[in-house]
């Protein structure tokens, strides 16, 4: 099955190579971006804001009832908020990059464990030292977002009353702040009027390539390591809440909407050449994304467990090949057809 799939991807690459088409005109680009903002970007950020608000309220009720932050209701609200964020994690331009919002929602990977260290300092300090919902917005980005919240919610409840009280206060401050960030980001997206649609298209395509690279390197290859012995399950994203693979599934879902087209609007596939001789590059991308989403949905294990077993490692290795194939389709075919020069020299950061 896997082999057949890979053969299909190779066939798609062969079929599409060497073909060129006139790129979209400026008006078409403006229309496409308008549609993507209205039907993809804004609804997705609204969904994230709504989930964050549900999480905030669930946490408030839990803490008011004298329980530690990690109740089932809060856990499931956290996972829903995380899922909503993963559907926009591929967007790294515009309002979400202003005021460090992106990093304040999720600073990851946190290589030096900045978040954990600061959290422990607060948990072991006086309750008065816990920043409130206003002050937390000015503290380290590693303390503000989903990773810090995940630690508070998914670490086994503390028997120490004082620490439980601190965890509640802190989780409450973080969720209030998260809703504020989500609110202001959404408001700025609603008011967002790009001066040049071509620049936005370029940003989106660059973001897609970058997001897939992050999935390949940081989310998959880094915890996988070179062998069972060198596997590092705690390097996986969201391993505490066992959401590592779910995150990737939601990432693919978000990208599917961007490329394949959201409800009532066109996706980036609009710009690709129509099917010829039975093969269409846009179909290949959409199929590839759907396949990845389905595959993860049907996979029983968690990434942290997978990387430590030979069979699980096979699956992660397959995902790496699959996501790599998708990235290649975007770099080799989607980008040129959209008139985006991912460049050689204009690539990032040299």
């Amino acid at each position: 099955m896997l082999t057949i799939r890979l053969i299909c991807i190779v066939a798609a690459l062969l079929a599409a190579s060497g073909l060129a088409q006139a790129e979209l005109g400026p008006e078409q680009k403006t229309r496409l971006i308008g549609s993507l903002l209205t039907n993809h970007v804004i609804p997705r950020y609204a969904a994230f804001r709504d989930q964050a608000a549900i999480l905030r309220d669930a946490l408030k009720r839990t803490c008011q009832a004298g329980q530690p932050p990690g109740t089932d209701v809060v856990k499931s609200a956290f996972s829903a908020t995380l899922a909503a964020w993963m559907q926009v994690q591929h967007i790294r331009f515009g309002p979400v990059m202003a005021k460090d919002r992106f990093y304040r929602v999720q600073f990851w990977p946190d290589k030096h464990g900045r978040g954990g260290k600061q959290l422990n300092r607060l948990l072991n300090g006086p309750p008065d030292a816990v920043p409130d919902k206003n002050r937390i917005a000015r503290t380290s980005v590693a303390l503000q977002g989903l990773p810090a919240l995940e630690r508070l919610i998914f670490t086994s409840p503390d028997s120490n009353d004082r620490r439980r009280e601190i965890a509640c206060r802190l989780a409450s401050a973080i969720t209030h702040n998260l809703v504020q960030i989500a609110d202001s980001t959404l408001a700025d997206w609603q008011a967002y009027k790009p001066a040049d649609a071509a620049i936005v298209i370029e940003a989106l395509v660059r973001n897609l390539v970058e997001q897939l690279q992050i999935i390949l390197d940081a989310k998959l290859a880094r915890p996988l390591g070179k062998s069972v012995k060198l596997a590092r399950p705690k390097r996986a994203e969201s391993w505490r809440s066992r959401n590592s693979l779910n995150n990737i599934r939601h990432n693919l879902q978000g990208m599917l909407e961007l490329i394949g087209g959201p409800d009532g609007g066109d996706g980036l596939r609009l710009a690709t050449r129509p099917a010829k001789e039975g093969y269409d590059i846009a179909d290949a991308m959409v199929e590839n994304l759907n396949y990845g989403i389905k595959s993860i949905s049907g996979h029983p294990g968690s990434l942290a467990e997978d990387v430590t077993s030979p069979k699980g490692r096979e699956y992660i290795t397959f995902l790496i090949a699959h996501v790599g194939g998708l990235q290649e389709l975007i770099v080799e075919h989607l980008a040129p057809q959209l008139g985006v020069n991912l460049g050689f020299n204009s690539q990032d950061g040299d």
């Binding site: 990093y103 990977p109 290589k111 980005v141 690279q213 290859a221 880094r222």
Partner: peptide, 13 residues
């Protein structure tokens, strides 16, 4: 970090 290729790890700071 070579583990994460060219991903930027500290933009806010």
């Amino acid at each position: 970090h070579p583990d994460t290729g060219r991903q930027k790890l500290n933009i806010p700071e």
